[in-house]
Design a protein around this nucleic acid. Structure first.
Length: 693
DNA sequence: CAAGATGTAATTTTT
DNA sequence: TTACATCTTG
């Protein structure tokens, strides 16, 4: 224990030792946050005599939870009972654990975003296009992120005239199925703790210590959950970095961290500002960018690791040259230490093609997830149906996969028949049995086939392990053969993926409990697929996905207005600040060297478009950047973003944006007086003020 | 009912 | 451009 302590700096030590009043740890990028949390857990157990099972640590990702577990356990082996979970799996645990008191179905399954769309499509009877459904799904998720029910203030989420109604129908259908969605995993526990005093009291007594990681990403519902868990006598400590809050679009509420001291009275704040990752230059660039944000508590990162080499900025003709530039950077063959970052997934394409053609090893991080693949979802649907015959989403998915002649019409005939009692109406297998009399020919044969299969699986499931049931599912239902035949050309992976799924289930035992555990992990811990696992490969990754990662060298690409910052984020200051934080996250991933690239033109949707440099470039002090290769068109070069200008009437100002309209260069200028003005450059009378000759 | 043909719309995404 | 959704035909 004491030598663990010696490795900490003063602020870290203070954070570990702190106990009693609520604590906010503002942990800058690369400031040894995880070390602090894990040491703190060890310290609480060893020095404060807190029982491991009284400690709750919540994270946002399974990866973070896994790492934390590993590090805590290696520090103190007897810490096995510390509850280290993601917010969602903790919510799931609370709901299952108290199901006997609330009357809720203990064996609920968890629907993902795709399943949500299926339900919505079902309750709106196919009247809406997929794009429209996605909008509603998004709103419903956001509503749940704020604990807003269909009968609540839904206007806050969407003013769409049908939203309230569709949301209500969606909830009804969800309740009928007995399953929950991601949002429910937070919202329902909040309700439960509010409505059942005995559960609330018992839960509060159990968890004497509550630790929250990545607090800046918490949403309102998660904040509500924490409020229910905290009773003033237990200890709450949250760790986060407001400058790294990048999930607003998904309901993250930066005010949670900004106002923590206000919400939790008498709280203390400790800042971890020493950075152990990056060079001084990189940190200066990062902070010069993020100081432009209003919504922050503020901290100043410093390092003792030395100045390092300058940040290099390359203006390139187009995306092909950008890829070429990245290839040039890794010409020294340090592939594994290099990451190429971009704002949007489609940007990876050019890099992929170029790297492929030039034999540069690369890996793409996190686009498609294994458990979201069609064939995998098909197999899982059979399992879901075995556990919950009321799962309509799983039923409609499985019933005709592989095709057995049960299309829209036949399915309609099955589902229209109403059973005598409620349980029969909700049990889709019983319903199918009843519906057989309405069928004939191919449909009848298919339905009988399907039922026979399910019954066969049902009979065997108690005796078999999860992997064995899955093996049965993919062979007996014909799924495996179906996909093996379909697997041709480039798509030869589907049958293979089914095998892989069986493999993934191999760690699970016999019985329904194990099957449920597997299904929960499929929903809550969906492994991201990495096609290239070798470490000696360049990492291609979106900026969002880099959080928590670090690389020797980072290339942030596509620093162009409307790409980064993204066009839909330039409308409001709040959105723009979020983009800026994203830039900050990207910059601070670099340990040793940072490159920035910006293209003059970019092919989009088959057309070549002229790009303006990102306004963020102008926020970096020029002395920190070395410009590698400039190719700025003449007129623009007079007014790049960030240039100081002088106007006869308004005084000095700085160029915030520039863009073309009707072939004329427009500029947006912010003056020292605070005024912001829009001008057509050539008529504006603006004079350039060159402050750095 | 399911494979080919045509049209159309393009963020980021832990769980 | 291209992925994917919807329409049309076998």
């Amino acid at each position: 224990m004491s030598d663990l302590f010696d490795k900490l700096n003063e602020a870290q030590r203070k954070a570990v030792l702190h106990f009693g009043s609520p604590l906010l740890i503002l942990a800058g990028a690369g400031s040894g946050k995880t070390r602090v949390i894990t040491t703190k857990i060890a310290y609480l157990i060893e020095k404060h005599g807190i029982y491991p099972e009284s400690i709750l640590a919540v994270t946002f990702t399974n990866k973070a939870a896994g790492e934390m577990k590993e590090r805590v356990h290696s520090m103190i082996p007897e810490s096995g009972d510390v509850m280290i979970k993601t917010f969602h799996s903790f919510g799931s645990w609370l709901l299952r654990n108290n199901a006997h008191l609330t009357g809720m179905n203990r064996n609920f399954l968890i629907y993902d975003d795709d399943d949500m769309l299926k339900i919505l499509s079902d309750v709106t009877e196919g009247a809406l296009k997929k794009e429209e459904l996605k909008k509603f799904a998004h709103w419903i998720s956001r509503a749940k992120d704020s604990c807003i029910k269909p009968d609540g203030n839904t206007l806050e989420i969407s003013v769409h005239s049908k939203f309230k109604d569709i949301y209500a129908k969606y909830q009804e259908s969800l309740r009928l199925s007995g399953n929950v969605d991601f949002g429910d995993l937070i919202m329902l526990p909040v309700d439960m703790l509010k409505n059942y005093p005995e559960i609330r009291i018992r839960t509060r007594q159990r968890f004497r210590v509550i630790l929250v990681d990545e607090y800046q990403d918490s949403n309102r519902a998660q904040f509500e959950l924490l409020k229910q868990l905290y009773d003033g006598s237990n200890y709450i400590c949250v760790v986060g970095d407001e400058d790294q809050s990048i999930y607003r679009f998904r309901g993250a509420e930066i005010d949670n961290i900004l106002n923590f001291p206000g919400y939790f009275k008498g709280s203390d704040t400790i800042r971890l500002e020493q950075n152990y990752r990056s060079t001084e230059t990189i940190l200066r660039v990062a902070s010069s960018v993020v100081v432009n944000n209003q919504s922050r508590l503020g901290k100043k990162l410093w390092t003792s690791s030395g100045e390092g080499s300058p940040v290099e900025l390359a203006y390139l003709t187009d995306q092909d040259r950008e890829a070429e530039f990245c290839a040039g950077v890794v010409a020294d063959r340090d592939y594994g230490g290099t990451a190429v970052l971009y704002r949007m997934n489609f940007q990876s394409r050019t890099f992929e093609e170029y790297f492929m053609n030039h034999n540069i090893p690369y890996r793409i991080v996190g686009t498609k997830r294994f458990y979201e693949r069609e064939e995998v979802k098909d197999a899982v649907a059979y399992l879901s149906l075995l556990v919950n015959p009321g799962d309509k989403v799983a039923f409609t998915r499985a019933v005709n996969k592989p095709p057995r002649g049960i299309g829209k019409k036949t399915l309609g005939r099955i589902l229209i028949s109403t059973g005598a009692d409620v349980s029969e109406r909700q049990d889709l297998l019983k319903k199918t049995e009843k519906g057989l009399k309405n069928l004939s020919g191919k449909g009848l044969r298919g339905a009988k086939d399907f039922l026979g299969m399910i019954n066969y699986l049902k009979k065997r499931m108690d005796a078999l392990s999860t992997a064995e049931i899955l093996q049965d599912v993919i062979t007996r239902t014909g799924l495996y053969d179906y996909y093996r035949e379909k697997d041709t050309g480039l798509n030869i992976a589907k049958a293979e993926n089914l095998k892989e799924l069986v493999n993934a289930a191999s760690g699970y035992g016999t019985g329904t409990g194990e099957l449920l555990r597997f299904l929960e992990n499929v929903s809550l811990d969906p492994d991201k697929e990495n096609p290239y696992r070798e470490s000696g490969a360049v990492t291609l990754i979106t900026l969002h996905n880099t959080k928590g990662l670090e690389f020797e060298r980072v290339i942030i690409t596509g620093l162009e207005q409307d790409i980064f910052p993204h066009y839909s984020s330039t409308q409001s200051e709040e959105e723009l600040e979020e983009e800026r934080r994203l830039f900050y996250v990207g910059i601070t991933r670099a340990k040793r060297k940072l490159y920035l690239t910006s293209c003059r033109t970019r092919r989009r949707y088959g057309k070549t478009e002229y790009q303006m440099p990102s306004q963020f470039i102008g926020e970096i002090p020029p002395e920190l950047i070395k410009i590698r290769n400039e190719s700025i068109p003449e007129e623009e070069s007079d007014y790049p973003v960030g240039t100081s200008v002088y106007h006869y009437d308004y005084g000095t100002g700085i160029i915030l944006r520039n863009w073309y309209n009707n072939g004329k260069l427009h500029v947006l200028v912010k003056f020292q007086t605070g005024m912001v003005g829009k001008f057509i450059a050539r008529y504006s009378g603006l004079e350039r003020v060159d402050s750095y000759d």
